[in-house]
């Protein structure tokens, strides 16, 4: 896994979370901007997952491979879940779901980085 990509994902996700939070406060449903944001995040986490798996297969050693893969799979699911569950309700609470999803993603990505570097 590359640190810069993970850092980029964390920052981008926090930005989308902020937009989603503002959308929630403004009492608007999920719009195009948030969907595009989630789409870009999904592409980024997929790229990250592919890179990580390739490097694991080619012999990179990390401590807790199973947990790492579990978290990696979760990062791939989160943007999709956020879009689906957030679009299911055309109200501010749909945007609230996207906010939660985009706060969960940086937390998980941070844990992924820790696991990759062998901390914890």
């Amino acid at each position: 896994m590359i640190g810069s990509l993970a850092t980029g994902i964390i920052i981008a996700s926090l930005v989308v979370a902020l937009i989603a939070l503002i959308t929630t406060i403004r009492n608007r449903p999920v719009g195009l901007v948030l969907l595009v944001g989630l789409g870009l995040l999904e592409v980024a986490v997929l790229v990250q997952a592919v890179i990580a798996i390739v490097r694991l297969i080619s012999g990179e050693e990390i401590g807790q491979t199973v947990v790492f893969l579990g978290y990696l799979a979760t990062t791939v699911v989160i943007p999709i879940f956020g879009a689906y569950w957030g679009m299911a309700e055309r109200s501010r609470w749909g945007s609230g779901v996207v906010t939660v999803a985009c706060l969960a993603l940086p937390a998980l990505t941070g844990r992924l980085l820790q696991l990759w570097q062998g901390v914890g």
Partner: peptide
Amino acid sequence: TGPGRVLVSVYAFFSLAAGAR
């Protein structure tokens, strides 16, 4: 639904994260 939808998403995330660990 409504605010409950947000609650469900937080619990779902905690289930996954805590469950995996």
